[in-house]
Design a protein around this nucleic acid. Sequence first.
DNA 1: TGTATGATTGGCT
DNA 2: GCCAATCATACAT
Length: 210
Amino acid sequence: MDRLTRGFYERDALAVARDLIGCLFVRIGAEGSRVGVRLVETEAYRGPMDPGSHGYRGMTPRTRSMFGPPGRLYVYFTYGMHWCVNVVCGREGECEAVLLRAGEPILGREEMTRRRGGGPERLVASGPARLAQAMGIDRSDDGASLLRGGGFFCARDDQTDTYRDAEVSVTPRIGLAQGRGEDLPWRYVVAGSPFASRSHRAPRRARRTG
DNA sequence: TGTATGATTGGCT
DNA sequence: GCCAATCATACAT
């Protein structure tokens, strides 16, 4: 299992979002303890060309890390109570990032469940704010490095198969208002994964008409 | 200084 | 399915 290096992140957010599916996202804690999830849901945010991105109107104090070098975290606070975590990608000076929306708890499951206040394991990291809370990520982790020496990393997990394209669905992103690129198919999710977040646009079940 | 809004979640009907 | 919680942020005044 190898830590992904800068070249992995220094690419278009769509490529990174797709390729992070099935990877482990790990936090190295005090005394080397680790918590980590296998990513099953990601979304790409693409800067000045993307009205859904926090960086659409240029850099602000909040979005500074999204414009920085790839291979770091962009962590933001929303709805007055939730933290969400992105992986910064693209080239330095660009504004590209991948929102980590959901994962399957793998390392430190007990610790993550405790941080979430209990509940079934499939819900521990099933949503961007849940994932961040489970892994103890907050403002102090904004800008943290995923590269060598950093306290976080992503890794391809060669112990198990990575997901084939046929197993990964591509859908519009979740939670965007109209006019914010709400129809762009920039979300990647493992089809049928019990660890993925509940879609706010749940596919309607077919109805018998008569 | 004022105000609208949000890359969400959890609880309730 | 509906909606309140709760406040940093961005932008208007």
